[in-house]
């Protein structure tokens, strides 16, 4: 049995070589932000969409664009604005005067990597169209349904400031993102390097180093990574602690309005597998769970007004849960 896991480990060793090349290529353009890059790779390998939140100028868009170039996939950047329509996103039927028939004009969503820039600036109907496509992985235009390309990954960004004139994503729709990342400022040394790199007049550009097929193959391998029952129980402990903290000996009932959905368990195990893959490991350990738990849970735990009054965030709550659940 351990031999099977060992065999998977050897395959991972062989087939994860592209990761070093990919990360190296991304690092040619992006300075620092290793946390964001690693999470983007987790999203890519676990086939889960990623919502990136951070103030302007933190290379969110650049990171996603660089990733798409390095993977050699089709990439579309959609700037979400208040006047965007669902048809601008998914496509529409266009009448052809020559043939006298309606022809389908596919929208930018028919791409491998979608960067939904400032997703909270578009009205609900557009967000809904995108999030439906994310979930179903298919789009219906007129009476015809079109499957989306594989890999299909949506990386959305949103700005935590300037909330005026925005349409915050409802909880049900945020839940469809596997990870929600909080991107912070670079360190002093990283910013110095950014200054030097960007002041040469020649902006570095990533080259395609990985094919989409490699990614799809890696995804299959990620799904084979072993997750022991003890790890599954640990995931359930964490997720259930967000719903019934008192059962797990935590006095957080007053602070949590709604706990994480079952999607949290699904995404937590998938993201942990991808994290283990990035560590070139064929099995998941509690470290993998803890590494991705915050990104999987921060947008799924809805805090109460009382928590807000105590200036607590969902991250504080998740951290308390992670600190108090016994590791197997």
């Amino acid at each position: 049995m351990y031999a099977d896991i060992k065999a998977i480990g050897e395959r991972i060793e062989r087939e994860s070589e592209f990761l070093s090349t990919l990360v190296g290529e991304i690092n040619k353009v992006i300075v620092g932000q290793s946390y964001m890059v690693e999470r983007l790779l987790i999203g890519l390998l676990a086939d889960g969409h990623v919502l990136i939140e951070g103030v302007p100028g933190l290379a969110k868009t650049l990171a996603v664009r660089t990733l798409s170039r390095a993977i050699d996939t089709s990439f579309q950047r959609i700037q979400f604005t208040p006047d965007l329509l669902p048809a601008d996103l998914i496509g529409t039927l266009v009448y052809s005067a020559d043939s006298g028939e309606f022809t389908t004009k596919k929208g930018p969503i028919f791409s491998n990597l979608i960067l939904a820039d400032e997703i909270n600036r578009a009205p609900a109907k557009v967000q809904s169209a995108l999030l439906e496509a994310m979930q179903e992985r298919q789009v219906t235009i007129g009476s015809e349904t079109f499957p989306l390309d594989d890999p299909f990954l949506v990386l959305a960004t949103q700005n935590p400031i300037e909330q005026e004139g925005t349409y915050p994503l409802p909880e049900a729709q945020v839940d469809r993102f596997m990870l929600k990342l909080r991107v912070g400022y670079p360190s002093r040394d990283e910013e110095l390097e950014i200054m030097e790199r960007m002041s040469t007049g020649k902006e570095p550009v990533a080259s395609p180093v990985v094919s989409p097929e490699t990614i799809i193959k890696a995804r299959e391998l990620v799904r084979e990574i072993y997750v022991d029952d003890k790890i599954k129980q640990y995931i359930l402990d964490i997720v259930f602690a967000t719903r019934e903290p008192s059962v797990h000996g935590m006095d957080l009932d007053d602070l949590i309005a709604y706990g994480a959905s079952p999607r949290a368990s699904i995404h937590l195990i998938a993201a942990a597998r991808a994290h283990a893959f990035l560590q070139r490991r064929a099995y998941v350990t509690p470290e993998d769970i803890k590494a991705v738990a915050m990104d999987v849970l921060r947008h799924r735990v809805i805090i109460t007004y009382e928590a807000e009054a105590e200036e607590l965030t969902s991250e504080d709550i998740v951290q308390r849960i992670l600190d108090n659940i016994e590791v197997p």
């Binding site: 049995m1 351990y2 896991i5 072993y226 022991d228 003890k230 790890i231 064929a282 099995y283 998941v284 350990t285 509690p286 197997p328």
Partner: peptide
């Protein structure tokens, strides 16, 4: 011990 606990190492 992690190997034994999480990777079925005997």
């Amino acid at each position: 011990a992690d190997l034994s606990k999480f990777a079925r190492h005997m």
